[in-house]
Amino acid sequence: MSQPIDKQRRAFLATASGAAAATAVAPGVFLHAVAEAAPRDSAVSDSVRYGMLIDTSKCAEGCTDCVSACDRENGLDMLLKPEGASDQHWDMQRPRWIRQVKLKNNLTGRVTALPMMCQHCEHPPCVDVCPTGASFRRADGIVMVDRHTCIGCRYCMMACPYNARSFIHESVRLKPTATPRGKGCVESCNFCVHRLDNGGTTTACQDACQHGAIVFGDLRDPNSAVSKALAQYPSEQIRADLKLNTGVRYTDI
């Protein structure tokens, strides 16, 4: 009975040292972030709005690099299937911050793939409905959950048009310092907020994408890569009809 847990714990420690190794393996961005590591000492302001442009034409079918990078970065891979749960049920209950969706255009039959995640709306329905204000939009445009005031009612999940939120259905046994989480709260993609607050400038999914399909940055800064790309290519919002002004945009769906 204690055997599998021990094994998990060893795996846990292995991941911990794995993070250190990654610093050496991926010198570019990671070291860059570390070198500049200056934890934020004043409140974020709305002079920044974080956002993303996803070039759908570059997103490779069947590639899950962004998904596994997100899982690793945010500790989602540390969650264990509860003993007795079926694989199928666990798959529907485990949290997912990012996923790949493959689409076929009904008229033309053209097939595209794209990553879906929290779209970081300017007018997020999840924030409007949250009874306690736990679901909130930070000044810099990141939509996230304060898990200290979340009561687990899941109304935000009902309201999200993007199926972007997850509920923690089980007790969390392995608790890395960097990614606290526990049973009974809702969570979703937060643009790797801990990286940004510690001086980083990229998200894990962006770093992991070998095809360069994800550009992340400050939408308010006309010189940022994401602003330039947005100025250059036609882009669209998913469910633009809802007028949520999403922070994540797509080209070439």
Partner: peptide
């Protein structure tokens, strides 16, 4: 949910109603 009007979801990493299939 109809996330992509005019498109059919043919694969999804998270139950987006592949081929209009209902969620269990």
């Amino acid at each position: 949910m109809s996330m992509f009007p005019g498109y059919t979801v043919i694969e999804s990493g998270y139950y987006d109603g592949v081929d209009g299939m209902a969620r269990a």
